[in-house]
């Protein structure tokens, strides 16, 4: 009796581990193959570039993972990144004396405000997250375009301390990577070990049950969208610092990569399962694929197609796992 009760739990936790192990295995194989055909792939500069590129994607993926775990989606993150990057770049070129902390706080605030709008429309307007964030994707981008027009902020207009931030390192680790690690680690911890994190999982597993169980669904949902928006805003600051040149098109289409990272990282689109840690690994895998294509001299245009194929592959895998679990549970039931 106890055996049948505990077996499914073992099975589930085993599968989650398998999922993340699978990504790590894919990473090892990909890196091994690419490095074998071109050893420069493992040079310090190349690894540094990969980590810097992963950092921005991973920060956004952490926020997106939380939203997807609640059985919602935030498609506006690419536009939020653009809005935040342009706001911060304009601010820094007008006031070169401002410290980096202010830039980061402004980025978080811009993104957080965008998240409030999304969250309020989803929760209180009872509009599906897909519709809301598809709409705000275009609204935020339109706002950035009508503000920026055709102009852009160039690297030579930005203060030095802002531009060197991306490359400055602490103990050999660039700030950008450090921030990404803290964000992914922090959000992962919050989701795994804290009450509010478990409540978010519960909301994703069954929204009605969560509401009946007395979970503050409105507050949590708003919090999830604000977190996703704020992290996209933070990513905007990192984007501006890393690339130096910012125009109204910054981050266009990035939402696809973010969703891909999250889904590939094992966060189920039905909500309620997956880890933030996995989403971070998904971001790393996508970035490594992009770099490998360059090193292996494969047409860059394949990258977007691969992103799409990976999304579909990941949902197929999730479905397969779900079907298998259901079948094994049914089999156990019939034996009892």
């Amino acid at each position: 009796m106890t055996a049948t009760a505990t077996a499914p739990r073992h099975l589930l936790s085993g599968l989650v581990k398998v999922r993340e192990l699978g990504i790590i295995l894919a990473l090892v194989l990909l890196v091994g193959y690419t490095a074998a055909s071109n050893p420069r792939f493992l040079s310090g500069q190349s690894i540094r570039d990969i980590l810097l590129n992963t950092a921005i994607l991973a920060v956004m993926a952490a926020g997106q993972a939380v939203v997807v775990i609640t059985r919602n989606i935030d498609l506006s993150v690419g536009s939020v990144l653009g809005l935040s990057a342009f706001t911060v770049a304009t601010m820094m070129s007008d006031n070169p004396g401002l410290p980096m902390v202010v830039a980061i706080l402004v980025g978080l605030a811009v993104g957080g405000a965008a998240g409030v709008l999304n969250g309020v429309l989803v929760r209180y307007g009872r509009v599906p997250a897909l519709v809301v964030t598809l709409g705000t994707l275009y609204m935020f981008r339109g706002v950035t375009y009508s503000w920026a027009g055709g102009q852009q902020v160039n690297a030579d207009e930005l203060p030095r301390h802002f531009l060197t931030f991306a490359n400055d390192a602490v103990l050999g680790i660039p700030w950008l990577v450090l921030i990404a690690l803290v964000v992914v680690g922090g959000v992962a911890l919050l989701m795994r070990n804290y009450r509010v994190g478990r409540e978010l999982y519960a909301m994703g597993s069954s929204p009605q049950a969560a509401e009946l169980a007395g979970i503050k669904v409105a507050r949590n949902l708003l919090g999830a969208f604000i977190l996703s928006g704020a992290l996209a805003g933070l990513a905007g600051v990192l984007f501006a610092a890393r690339f130096g040149t910012v125009d109204a098109a910054a981050g266009t289409g990035l939402e696809l990569n973010v969703v891909a990272a999250v889904v590939v990282g094992g966060v189920a689109v039905f909500g309620g399962s997956g880890t933030v840690w996995g989403a971070g690994l998904g971001a790393l895998l996508l970035t490594v694929i992009g770099s490998s294509l360059t090193v292996l001299d494969i047409n860059q245009f394949w990258q977007q197609a691969i992103v799409g194929a990976l999304i579909i592959l990941a949902i197929c895998a999730d479905r397969l796992v779900a079907v298998r679990i259901a079948r094994s549970l049914r089999k156990k039931d019939s034996h009892v």
């Binding site: 689109v269 245009f301 977007q304 197609a305 691969i306 579909i312 949902i315 479905r319």
Partner: peptide, 27 residues
């Protein structure tokens, strides 16, 4: 096929093929 044959959610499937088909167009 992905939506009805495999029973996957159409939103996620068509976000995936949105990226896939556009990527193939560039290829």
């Amino acid at each position: 096929f992905l939506v009805t044959g495999l029973g996957l959610p159409s939103l996620a499937v068509t976000i995936g093929t949105l990226a896939l088909y556009r990527g193939l167009a560039f290829v």
